[in-house]
Design a protein around this nucleic acid. Structure first.
Lengths: 210, 210
DNA sequence: GCCAGGATAACATATTTATGCGGTTGATTT
DNA sequence: AAATCAACCGCATAAATATGTTATCCTGGC
């Protein structure tokens, strides 16, 4: 028997979800709340297997509710519900420890599948969410920004800078004179539009040149 | 009609997949190959909607095959198949432009669902894969490393360093003497175990202190 | 054959940074 | 009351960095 808690501010949807789930074999809604004001106490008292958490709630929103839950319980599976599939929320929910992220419009029978999937350690996501997650992922390390037209040698020097090498050390590593290192670095600064080592390093990280 | 290509070195599985898919309403396997040696030519010639790509193949493996495909075609949906759900492959596949990632053991009917999902722009993943993806994600930005015990003021100074400010500018911004800035920075270096501005900046990025 | 651009190098100079030492003050803890 | 610690400030010195200018060599493209 899968025991659930529901957090959803819309009364119709809250009731609807409760009815749907309670009417299904193997599921039981322990309680349903309209806000997260006492989420910690409620979760510790009821000890549910899975929590359905609406994201868009007045007062304490779903993400904050999720964070509160994770302060006291890492085991309960939390399935985020939302009408929007906007980027920011997905990312935040995931990094805050959500176990799944489903759109409200995908409700009817699939939801029960998702709940089971979450309970058994999976990470259910509706297709559109999964796509977003993959996009974020692949955009995160996409092809080391080839945009500044750094020459091979300049890229090499920048790499050393990022690793904290001094000019002298770089000259040694690359078997060139320190003055040549200077020349390269000056060129790099021009191309990156910076004027100090640490700015160059910061830019390298930000633009994933390294 | 969804048109597919299959890349799978195991003859039994290759045949089995072809049979299964061809026997299903609305799907057609254009061809099935046992390696990726001519993947570019094959894909351009057949123009499939979806490609099933085994990861663990001798010679050119599935990831490399995927990369080759992406050199010439960004539209075709590529669904990776594997027996293992090891971390490295998942990550590589995703960043190389895979549209989905499913375990071979989840084959029978679900696979057809996954294919349809991929074709319609979704990102089908088996539960265990999705879990991994989420884990990677959340491990990537977990709780701005509060581990170095930087004081509030030190964090502030570090922030300025990251933004490329010189000591003098920091002193101005913070309404303190430049010597105080020095003191703070020295303390920061001790705590971060570095000994230059750029190293501190690099560490700040790496450990997500900023 | 000429030209652009990358890689190399040298020299000079001003500024910034790193490091050592010293100190005062005020808030918090023990 | 003593101890601790963050925040503040000063002075001195050596090293590293930033900036400018100039020049050679080599390579690939027009």
């Amino acid at each position: 028997m899968t025991k659930l808690l529901i957090y959803e501010d819309n009364p119709q949807l809250r009731e609807g979800l409760t009815m749907l789930i309670n009417g299904s074999e193997g599921f039981e809604v322990l309680a349903a709340f309209k806000n997260c004001n006492n989420v910690i106490e409620e979760v510790t008292a009821w000890k549910p297997d899975v929590i359905l958490m609406d994201i868009d709630m007045p007062g304490i929103n779903g993400i904050e509710g999720l964070k509160k839950i994770r302060q006291v319980n890492d085991d309960v599976k939390v399935l985020m519900l939302t009408v929007f599939d906007d980027n920011k929320n997905v990312f935040q929910a995931i990094s805050s420890g959500a176990n799944g992220y489903v759109l409200k419009k995908t409700l009817p029978t699939k939801l029960l599948e998702y709940i089971k999937e979450a309970q058994s350690g999976g990470a259910p996501m509706t297709a559109s969410i999964a796509t977003q997650v993959l996009k974020m992922f692949s955009s995160m390390n996409n092809e080391k920004g080839e945009d500044y037209h750094l020459s091979d040698r300049e890229k090499q020097v920048l790499q050393f800078l990022v690793e904290g090498y001094s000019y002298k050390m770089i000259a040694n590593e690359m078997f060139i004179a320190i003055d040549t290192v200077r020349s390269h670095i000056k060129k790099i600064y021009e191309k990156l539009h910076v004027n100090s080592k640490s700015e160059a390093v910061a830019k390298a990280f930000k633009d994933r040149l390294v």
